[in-house]
């Protein structure tokens, strides 16, 4: 049984770290929906790529997420006039609808749909793992070098780079674990960590730890309750939420 989970577990380690990092930034910028929208744009790219077999599969996804990055950067200019979340939410809904329309023309449809939502982390190949590691390492290094600029939120160019690199990460993870799991990895550990700790670095460590532990619980649930692995991990993320509520309740000053 353990041998089935070696590659998925390594994948989970990588996913937890990089998504917690981006999640913390996303919460700071107040653009939670950006993740769902970028994941959906990545999925849209995957649907389109079925009709463009001469292109490498990631290319349409990278195109659409880059488009998303351009859009979200421009939204940040008018953030005083219109709440960014509204516009980003609109982008999400339209790309989801486009996915449905395109899938109706494809023979893959139903299976594509469920793969898009929950993926199948159990089937991750060593090849996919290495690709993930390479992409995340490159982006991680880039973000580390320019960490000051990324934390400042002042220059629009770094906003664009933030969304663009975010899109690249999401493109690679959605193809493995699907939209729902990407959202869970992104938001839940980050917001848990950030409600208890105050330094970015500490939040990153705690969030990653919570993410990995929750994933292990999810895997155990999938084994003992005979459930598909991806969906059980998403469901397991209810645990950090509950413990957060409980701890906050306990720690509240009377």
């Amino acid at each position: 049984m353990i041998s089935l989970f070696i590659y998925p577990f390594l994948g989970i380690l990588l996913l937890s770290l990089i998504h917690c990092y981006f999640g913390l930034h996303v919460i700071k910028r107040g653009v939670i929906f950006a993740d769902l929208a970028l994941s959906q744009l990545a999925a849209l790219g995957a649907c389109v790529s079925v009709f463009l077999p001469f292109l490498p599969v990631m290319v349409p996804s990278l195109f659409f997420t880059a488009l998303g990055a351009v859009l979200f950067t421009s939204f940040s200019f008018i953030k005083d006039k219109v709440q960014q979340e509204i516009l980003i939410g609109i982008v999400y809904v339209i790309s989801a609808a486009l996915c449905m329309a395109i899938m109706s023309k494809s023979v893959l449809q139903h299976h594509q749909l469920s793969a898009m939502l929950v993926g199948d982390i159990l089937m991750i190949t060593p090849h996919a793992l290495i690709k993930m590691l390479a992409i995340y390492a490159a982006i991680g290094l880039f973000h580390w070098f320019f960490r000051a600029s990324f934390h400042q939120h002042s220059h629009w160019f770094f906003t664009f780079l933030f969304y663009a690199t975010f899109g690249m990460v999401v493109t690679s993870s959605v193809s493995v674990v699907g939209i729902l799991l990407v959202f869970a990895y992104l938001i839940i550990p980050a917001q848990f960590a950030q409600s208890f700790l105050h330094t970015f670095r500490h939040q990153l460590y705690l969030g990653t730890l919570v993410s990995v532990l929750t994933s292990v619980v999810g895997i155990l649930m999938s084994i003992y309750l005979d459930l598909p692995t991806g969906s059980s991990i998403v469901c397991a993320f209810v645990l950090p939420l509950l413990s957060q509520l409980a701890l906050k309740g306990l720690l509240r000053k009377p």
Binding site: M1, L4, F5, H110, H111, L113, S114, A115, V118, D120, L122, M123, I219, S222, I223, D226, L227, P228, T229, G230
Partner: peptide, 12 residues
């Protein structure tokens, strides 16, 4: 079941 990925128990 159609549209649902097989569980680890089933694959084993």
């Amino acid at each position: 079941k159609p549209g649902i990925p097989p569980t680890p128990a089933h694959l084993l």
